[in-house]
Amino acid sequence: MTVTTQSRKRPLSGRGGRRADDQIYAAIDLGTNNCRLLVARRNRKSFRVLDTFSRIVRLGEGLGQSGVLSDAAMTRTISALSICAAKLQRRGVTRLRCVATEACRRAANRDVFVERVAAETGLQLEIIDHSEEASLGILGCAPLLNPDIPEALIFDIGGGSTEVSWIRLPEGPDGGNGPEPVMQDWFSVPKGVVSLAEKYGGKDIPQNLYRQMVDEIQSDFQAFEQKHGFARRIAEGKLQMLGTSGTVTTLVGVYKKLPRYDRNRVDGTLMNRTTAVGLCHKIAAMSYDQRVANPCIGDQRADLVVAGCAVFEALARLWPVPQLRVADRGLREGILYKLMNGG
């Protein structure tokens, strides 16, 4: 279902009389840790980005202990969503979908939060389930998949959950793979960087606790491996892996020693698995202050990145694909593709 919103200043319903090829599209992805906006116009190949916004809001902070979204977290998030609403108005957005994921799925007071968002920003927030979140993420990442490898695992290390989707690339008319991937199965664990950092700590983390995180996540996903036998497909060269999350994009930024994070230099990067796991160990061994000082980690991610590294290492141990594709794209792009195709 396409969600539209009514701004108090001007409707964003998509019924403003613009021609179909002149629509301005927008997607908002509200996760456990981040609030992200993407505004775009369709072009011949896909879309042209007009505006973006991303802010770490930590909506799910303390959720694991309390079961509810805190007043402080809701206020921070609504402040970020207000900035998004202003950008939508300024850009003249006509088609919008605004979705929320794990934190809102789990919170007992999610309805109160959704009502506050509508009242204070004019945005109609839709809470989507795991399956739709995975499907939209796949759609957004599909352009980065290698068409010569018939299957893929796409993983997303979120703030409150980690999802892995298994997809096939159908054969195209020329004998190669077609452009539209088909989801075969997906698996979600309600553990992400925020929830793990709250459980194990996020500042100076002893090596034994880091190993516990790795072992815990690997154990959680073992059932998915046992069900489908992905390790065998990897050994046969039939399966690729693609990661989309702040963790894997941060790894690339640190690996490339970027003076500041640069999406254009990160999105689509192919990383050697051994190199990536070694980088996880290096980051886990850093002090909190050293992580803060790294320009691609900073104080916003310094207490979360070690947990993310642990999740990544667990998946890399379970599914040892020689090289990993990293995507700085996913849910927002998937929403835009669907909106532009009438979804």
Rank of each mutant, 00 (worst) to 15 (best):
V182E: 04
K87S: 11
S195Y: 11
P173I: 05
R260T: 13
N146Y: 10
G253R: 09
G243D: 15
A285R: 05
A223T: 13
R97D: 10
K338Q: 12
I205C: 15
I78Y: 02
T274K: 12
A284K: 10
Y337F: 08
K191I: 11
D204W: 04
T121N: 06
G343H: 07
G229S: 11
L50W: 13
G202Y: 03
Y255M: 14
G202W: 04
L88G: 00
K203G: 07
A310K: 00
G159M: 00
P170L: 08
V305E: 01
A231Y: 09
H281W: 12
R8P: 11
L336P: 00
V3Y: 13
R36F: 09
G62T: 15
M241E: 02
V254N: 07
V326D: 06
R263K: 10
P322M: 08
G202T: 05
I149W: 00
G178E: 06
V117T: 11
S131Y: 08
L169C: 09
R332E: 00
R10Q: 14
P150H: 13
V112R: 12
K227E: 09
A26S: 07
T247M: 07
V214Q: 04
C35H: 04
I83E: 09
Q184I: 13
T5P: 10
K9D: 05
I24G: 04
R110Y: 06
T247D: 05
S161V: 15
A86D: 02
A119R: 14
Q23K: 00
G137N: 14
F221H: 12
A107M: 03
R265H: 15
Q290L: 01
Y25D: 07
T77A: 00
Q207I: 00
I205K: 14
G14C: 02
I24K: 05
I234M: 15
R58L: 09
E151N: 04
F47R: 05
R329T: 14
K191R: 14
V112N: 01
A231K: 07
E216D: 13
G62W: 00
R232I: 07
S79K: 04
V114C: 04
D22M: 10
E115F: 06
I149F: 08
S70W: 09
R301D: 09
M1K: 15
D129Y: 10
G60L: 07
S161G: 15
D215S: 11
I56A: 09
M74W: 03
L63E: 03
A142P: 03
D111Y: 10
R58C: 02
A316H: 05
L81Y: 10
G159P: 00
L336D: 03
L125T: 15
R90G: 01
R44M: 14
S54L: 15
A40F: 02
R42T: 10
V39E: 09
G172N: 02
E198C: 12
K191A: 09
A134L: 12
L239S: 05
P322D: 03
